Simulated scan of single mutants.
Amino acid sequence: MSFNLSKGDRFSLSKAAPGLSVVKIGMGWDPNDQPNGPEFDLDVSAFAINSSFKIPSDSYFVFYGQVRMGNCVKDIVENELDRPITDDQSILGAIDDPDGKRSDGDDDEDMFIDLTKVNPKVEQIIICCTICKYPHDNKKDRRTLDLNFGQVEDCYIRIVNELNGEELLRYDLKDQYTNEDAVEFGRLFRVGDSWEFEAMGRAHTGSLQTLVDMYT
Rank of each mutant, 00 (worst) to 15 (best):
L20N: 01
I127M: 10
G93E: 08
V183C: 06
Y134Q: 08
I91M: 02
L92C: 15
M200H: 12
R143T: 05
E123H: 12
F47Y: 08
M200I: 14
R190T: 04
V191N: 08
D108L: 07
L188V: 04
D110R: 07
N164D: 13
H204R: 15
G201E: 00
I85H: 00
K54H: 04
I157Y: 09
G192Q: 03
H204K: 15
F112T: 10
L5R: 07
N32C: 13
D114A: 06
V118T: 03
T210H: 14
W29A: 10
V23N: 00
C132T: 14
P98T: 08
E80W: 13
V77C: 02
I127D: 07
Y64T: 00
R202Y: 13
D41C: 07
R10V: 13
M214K: 12
L168A: 02
F53W: 14
A17W: 10
D146G: 12
K140I: 04
S194I: 02
N161K: 04
F61Q: 11
D141Q: 01
R142M: 14
D75M: 06
R143N: 08
F149L: 11
T116A: 14
R142G: 11
D99K: 01
S194P: 05
D9C: 09
L145A: 15
K54R: 13
D58N: 11
I126R: 03
D146N: 14
I85F: 04
A94M: 03
